[in-house]
Nucleic acid binder design. Sequence first.
DNA 1: TGGAGTTCGTTTCTACTGCAACCGCCTGCG
DNA 2: CGCAGGCGGTTGCAGTAGAAACGAACTCCA
Lengths: 167, 167
Amino acid sequence: MTEPDDRSGRLQLDRFLPYQLSIASNAVSNRIAEIYRDRFDLKIPEWRIMAVLGDTGAATQRELTERTLMDKVAVNRACRTLEERGFIEREPNATDGRSHHLELTGQGRSIYDRIMPLALQMEQQLFASFSAVEREIFARLLLRVREQAGALEPEGESVLAPRASSA
Amino acid sequence: MTEPDDRSGRLQLDRFLPYQLSIASNAVSNRIAEIYRDRFDLKIPEWRIMAVLGDTGAATQRELTERTLMDKVAVNRACRTLEERGFIEREPNATDGRSHHLELTGQGRSIYDRIMPLALQMEQQLFASFSAVEREIFARLLLRVREQAGALEPEGESVLAPRASSA
DNA sequence: TGGAGTTCGTTTCTACTGCAACCGCCTGCG
DNA sequence: CGCAGGCGGTTGCAGTAGAAACGAACTCCA
């Protein structure tokens, strides 16, 4: 079943770091997405919006795209459904008629209060085998690849017009 | 702009490991996908198939889904387009009429020979700031989360019916 | 042998993501 | 003022991924 150890010039997908990264990320994202879907009927983008709003208070969509690194369309859609479900509401923005201040409703906050502990608990479980030091190292390494990938970017976009998705 | 250090019960998206993992993975995947698209007009699933076939020789789609951890539909589609482009070909499978043995054509192999060095070079660039030890650590940590995520899986599937995607 | 149940591959359908064009408001300069 | 250009937000559209359904081939066992 498992290949013996072959070290010729060949690639060996399992040793290819970007591949490993992708697999791991997907596994984690899927697990988390599943939990939120089952328990709260929330998708990751929606959950992220809730997280930010609950964490730092009212914000415009513009600010939310910045904080979540999601596409502005994704933010818009997530906000819309959250609004329809009564978890957030839009206050008119006195200083700029184009945007609104979005914030959690009472109901939204109560969901938030149930969601956040769950998030931390899941993180806890997923990284259960990691020591505190390892988590720290892991976070730093992730940040470094991410920066490097950003640096290799062809032109323009970088942090300002990124594309991100799950979890 | 940047919050001072707040450690109340709040979540702080930037400290949430699954989120960081997702962001980093996307950044890397996007960069790689871009390169392959521009230079060879190959998508990640197609590239993966080529990698495995070039690496270990002929295989059925079934085997390819196992090795690449991709959905069988994704594998099918990738194989189809690779076949249409003349990079791989199907030999009838003597022992099982349902499947075929897929392998690289001459042309496919010559592409493979150009692609693999590029892959290694990109990995090199993306992880340029990593020492050999750090790469090793990173790989191990990734493997551990992945296994943990698999272990938390609700039921059945695990390694046998996974879902994965880019890079 | 012949049927029940399973597996491989394929097709189809649906959901989601991301880009690009677009609309209305805002700002700055003539 | 007023109009040119830019920005926040929205809508439409295309590409992609995954789920389910299906046909054909295989296995096993009576």
